[in-house]
Design a protein around this nucleic acid. Structure first.
Length: 411
RNA sequence: GGGCAGUUGGCGGAGUGGUCAAUCGCAACAGACUGUAAAUCUGUCGGGCUACGCCCUACGGAGGUUCAAAUCCUUCACUGCCCA
């Protein structure tokens, strides 16, 4: 893998936005980039053909989920993940570190690794950092991720420090396994990104980023955000972390975010993003547009025969009306999910593509401010139309109540 | 013509003397969703208020019993099944 920084934005003194090229054996990725999430080997409700039409340059897969189903051996037998799923562009696989957070009820942490009880059949699996590297070798993803602990929010400084220490130790072990004890299996090169942790604490974030920089990787991820903390924390964490990471290497902010988050974090020096938001929200009826977000299932669109976004040239907007998409989405027709997913993915990819163009043109700040203002205006309008009687908090399911993560045998 | 069963909020369907403006599901309406256990979840859902409470109108129609009826009785209407 090779990353080259093409241009640093100069549209305002505060902007740290960058444009670059990330070359892999499966193709070159133009950054900033948004990577659609394809946890189980597909990006939900959209075919590879349509993903490419939307401008997707790289997608994610998930080590933990693919290991459980269909299983690493099947994928290896198929000739790797690219061949198995029929995707010939770059792929990044997440390590399962996020499942340490999202499946916290079903796992136990030890210094040596993570013990998972399968959410599918209750079977037991132990993942050491080394195992996760070996699995990703078998998957053959272009960018592999180290195993990390994604700590919950809120989280004490003490816990965040211990957690980060563990993640740092695991990064070292993953790196050793990756470079000294394993090799690519399918003829294309792979690289390994470590993950900056440290909760919402600047000192820990700096220390984490510096530690990883010392270890010298080809690119760096920033994790542990978007787990419930305020947006300002996310932006500050992105900024602080980027400041401590080498300029000539790509930075990947994991799990972010909304269009606003992406713009804010590009301003702070982030190059790569991934998030389930465009796909999940599409299936749940929320669409993103150049003027803000909308709930396509709202009654207001029942007889609105204009496209979702006049400025959008995705397949959905070129061919169908709000009224039709609303109809299909409301009754949860499969094609409704497909059309909304196509639109949202297209929008997120348009957003980063246009952002890149503006960066190269030194007009990024104006572009960002215009879009953020438009979004804020739209949100305030939405807010005034709400019928909610009070702030409603969703009751979490049992398995979603994150018990404080435990690190066993640390001492 | 006779017998039996039934008629509950937009729909389906609980409830069978007070704790019922009425469980639940669907539909409807709104909201949430950030390295996907999510095509999921949450809230509202007869009307009106000086709203964590109060007042109306409501369980096919009318009448009755009772301190109190969606729940019991009479009768009418309608629906389904069975027998002529």
């Amino acid at each position: 893998m090779k990353f080259s920084l093409q241009h640093k934005d100069t549209s305002s003194s505060g902007s740290k936005a960058r444009a670059g090229l990330l070359e892999t054996d499966h193709g070159t990725i133009e950054t900033p980039i948004f990577m659609p999430v394809g946890t189980l080997g597909d990006v939900k409700a959209i075919e590879h053909r349509e993903l490419k039409e939307c401008g997707a340059q790289i997608i994610l897969g998930n080590t933990y989920h693919l290991y459980l189903r269909p299983g690493t051996e099947i994928i290896q037998k198929a000739g790797g993940l690219h061949r198995f799923i029929g995707w010939d562009l770059p792929m990044l696989t997440d390590s399962g570190g996020y499942q340490v957070f999202s499946l916290s009820q079903l796992r136990n942490l030890t210094r040596d690794g993570v013990f998972f009880t399968s959410h599918i059949d209750g079977s037991k699996h132990f993942f050491r950092p080394e195992d996760v590297v070996q699995i990703q070798r078998k998957l053959g993803s272009d960018i592999c991720m180290v195993l990390d602990e994604c700590p919950p929010y809120p989280c004490s400084h003490d816990y965040a420090k211990k957690s980060n220490d563990l993640t740092m130790a695991w990064a070292e072990r993953c790196k050793n396994e990756f470079y000294n004890n394993s090799a690519p299996l399918y003829g294309h090169t792979q690289t390994l990104f470590p993950i900056v942790q440290g909760g919402v604490y600047d000192d820990l974030r700096r220390s984490s980023a510096e530690t990883l920089t010392q270890m010298d990787f080809e690119g760096y991820a920033i994790g542990g955000v978007s787990v419930g903390e305020p947006k300002e924390d996310v932006y500050r964490i992105a900024e602080v972390s980027c400041e401590c990471l080498p300029e000539e290497k790509p930075r990947y902010l994991m799990g972010v975010g909304t269009p606003e988050d992406i713009l804010e974090c590009i301003s702070r020096g982030v190059d790569m993003f991934d998030c389930v938001m465009p796909t999940r929200n599409a299936r749940n009826g929320t669409l993103f547009t150049t003027w803000g977000k909308m709930t396509i299932r709202n009654a207001a669109y029942a007889d609105d025969f204009s496209p979702i976004d006049e400025a959008c040239d995705c397949y959905t907007c070129r061919n169908f009306s709000k009224a039709y998409v609303r109809h299909l989405s409301s009754i949860k027709e499969i094609v409704g999910h497909q059309l909304t997913t196509i639109h949202n993915i297209h929008f997120f990819l348009w957003l980063v593509k246009e952002t890149r163009r503006q960066i190269l043109n030194n007009t990024f700040t104006q572009f960002r401010n215009d879009l953020l203002n438009r979004y804020a205006e739209n949100e305030s309008k939405r807010g005034s139309g709400r019928h909610q009687k009070g702030k409603i908090k969703r009751k979490p399911k049992d398995y979603e109540i994150h018990k404080p993560a435990r690190i066993k045998k640390l001492d």
